[in-house]
Structures are given as C-alpha cells and as structure tokens.
C-alpha cells in the first residue's frame, strides 16, 4: 500500500469538505477500497473514515418507503424484516453477493461505489483506460468472458459488479448526497451510473466531495419480486448475468413488469421498451422473446463473452415463466 494519512470524520459535512481534495478517499466498509489499495490500483494520499458517523439507520418514509443510511451494512439490510417483507428482490440480491464476512462489513453507499472486477483494471501492469486514462483497453482483445455486451465503448467494456444496485435499479431507488457546503441532492438511480464512453474513469454522477448519505426506496410496486443470479459457482462469485424482476400477473396474463440486469454493462441495465412489451401481454414464449429482443438491442460480444446473449435470453425466459406461474 502507498502511504496515506488517516483521519476519522467528525461530521458528514467535514468528510465531504475533506473529500474535495484530489487524492482523498472516503473509507466505510473498506472491503473493496483496501483490496484495490493493496494492489496500488487505488493510491489515495488521505483516507477519511466515516464509520463513526450516525448514518446507519433504516427508517420508514412518510410515503410508505424506506430510507437506508449509507453505513447500513449489507448483511443488516438483507436481514431487515421490512426489506424481507416488502423488498424481497433487494434482500435476495444482497444475499447473492460476496460472502457473509464481507456483507458484515460492506456498506450501502460503498456497495454502490464499488469498482469493476475487470482483470485488467486490477492488474497495474496492463493498459486500462479506467485506471489509467488513455492507456488503452486490454480487455477488448483479451480474456473478456466476464465483460459487458451492452453500452460498451472503444475505451472500456467493464461491467458493474454490484447485485444490490441491480435490485435498487428495479425498485427506482434514489441516492441522497451531501457536499462540503452542506448542500443536499437526490439522484434517481437511473441517473446515478454512467456508461464508459470516452471517460470510463468517471463512473457515477457524483461530483468531487459529494458523499452518499442514504438510499431511499419508494413504496414497493405490485407484483412478485425475484432476483436470479447466474454465475460460475453456486455461491460467492460475481454474476455472469443477473436479473432483478418485479412482475404483476394473474392467470398467465402479465399486467406490468420491471426488469433490471447485472453483469451485462457498465451499469445496471434497464430497458423501458422491454418492460412496455410485457404490459398486458400473455405470459408466453412470444412475449418473453419480444422482451429479450428489446433488452439485447444493440448487444455486441467480444469473443469470450458472446455466450452472455443467449444466456440473458434464457435467464429472462426462465424467470418470467416462473413468475407468471406464481
């Protein structure tokens, strides 16, 4: 690890003010940041520890939703009775991610901000536009089995690794932030993540010094909630493809549906047209195929990850068929 100074934040505003300085990083759970610091992928000069700030509560909101403090641990969020009862897709997604030890440490805000697990991003001897802008992308012509098929650019084909964020995308979550001037902001999760484009090093719409304080969930939409994760091992592996689905149906007829995908792109992937194709549609193969066509519109494989296209289609079929039966 490169040398850094360490300070414990006294308030959120103080942490945000400190984080404006280039080279300063906020540390919460630290499970991804310290991993990257050991490899010198991240080399902050100053660390600001926010773990002692009072941002670890889950509260009911007046509209019947939930407000999740940024320091709520992944394991606590997954186990919260309100989340299990009303936002099962979120609980399932959290439990599908990482290991119990990591979930005990990892936080809500940190999970949203975790970095890609692209092998070349992690290997500082290889070119990577995300780690070292302008150096090139070793993944495009390299081993790219785990990489993106949607929303890619000539600069970057990395995926976002979070399961939690995929469920939050389906739930229309909002990200609350504060900056060094103590100004607060609410960012819909659909506008939170960016595609790589020409600046893959910029992953979110957060400005320097802007800190996540909470994630709010609106009241749950009607329907059954499912999180399906397809991966190389039965446990403790990142998704090749994952689907967060909320489907409202009766007797083989779908009324409405929400679909968000993980493992396919630089951000959780949601396609409005795919969901529209499921509105008031019969739950049959033709409908599922039409939805899958919309999801995969513009998809492009890079050799090693071509299989993700049929895998996405089949996973979506399986999930929708199962949900329409219940």
């Amino acid at each position: 690890m490169k040398a850094f100074t360490y300070q414990r934040a006294k308030s959120t505003a103080q942490a945000a003010a400190a984080a404006v300085k280039p080279g300063t990083k906020i540390i919460a759970g630290g499970t991804n940041l310290l991993d990257l610091m050991k490899l010198q992928v991240e080399t902050p000069s100053d660390l600001v520890d926010i773990n002692r700030l009072p941002l670890d509560k889950i509260e009911e909101t007046p509209d019947g939703g939930l407000r999740i403090g940024t320091l709520v641990r992944n394991s606590d969020l997954a186990a919260d009775p309100r989340v299990r009862q009303r936002y099962g897709v979120l609980s399932r997604a959290l439990l599908a991610g990482a290991s119990a030890q990591l979930r005990n440490k990892a936080t809500t805000g940190g999970n949203l901000l975790q970095r890609t697990r692209c092998y070349y991003f992690y290997d500082i001897t290889k070119p990577c536009n995300k780690r070292n802008p302008g150096s090139g992308c070793a993944a495009i012509a390299g081993f790219n089995r785990i990489h993106a098929i949607l929303g890619t650019s000539e600069q970057c084909i990395a995926t976002h690794p979070s399961d939690m964020a995929v469920a939050m995308q389906a739930l229309d979550a909002k990200v609350e932030t504060v900056n060094g001037e103590d100004e607060t902001k609410v960012i819909p999760i659909a506008e939170f993540y960016r595609l790589p484009g020409n600046t893959p090093e910029i992953e979110t719409s957060l400005k320097p010094g802007e800190i996540i304080t909470a994630v709010t969930l609106p009241p749950p939409p009607p329907g059954v909630q499912v999180y399906r994760k397809v991966r190389d091992r039965a446990s403790y592996a990142f998704a090749l493809v994952s689907v967060a689905a909320i489907v409202d149906s009766t007797r083989g007829q779908i009324r409405s549906a929400r679909l968000a995908f993980g493992g396919l792109a630089h951000r959780p992937w949601r396609v409005a047209q795919a969901e529209q194709r499921l509105v008031n549609a019969a739950a049959d193969t033709t409908t599922f195929n039409a939805a899958a066509d919309s999801v995969l519109e513009g998809a492009r494989g890079f050799g090693g990850n071509d299989f993700k296209m049929p895998l996405t289609r089949r996973t979506l079929h399986s999930v929708l068929a199962e949900m329409a039966r219940t």
Binding site: Y6, I27, G30, T31, L34, D35, D49, N51, A100, Q101, L102, N104, K105
Partner: peptide
C-alpha cells in the same frame, strides 16, 4: 483471516487496525 468484531465475523485482512 476471519475474526469476530463485537461478535460479528469479518475478514481481518480487509480492514485497518486503526478503524
């Protein structure tokens, strides 16, 4: 490296002592 902090299991390699 699993240890218990306040009774909860974590990976002690991925956290700083000072935290």
């Amino acid at each position: 490296c699993t240890v218990l902090i306040e009774g909860r299991r974590i990976n002690s390699c991925l956290t700083l002592a000072v935290m």
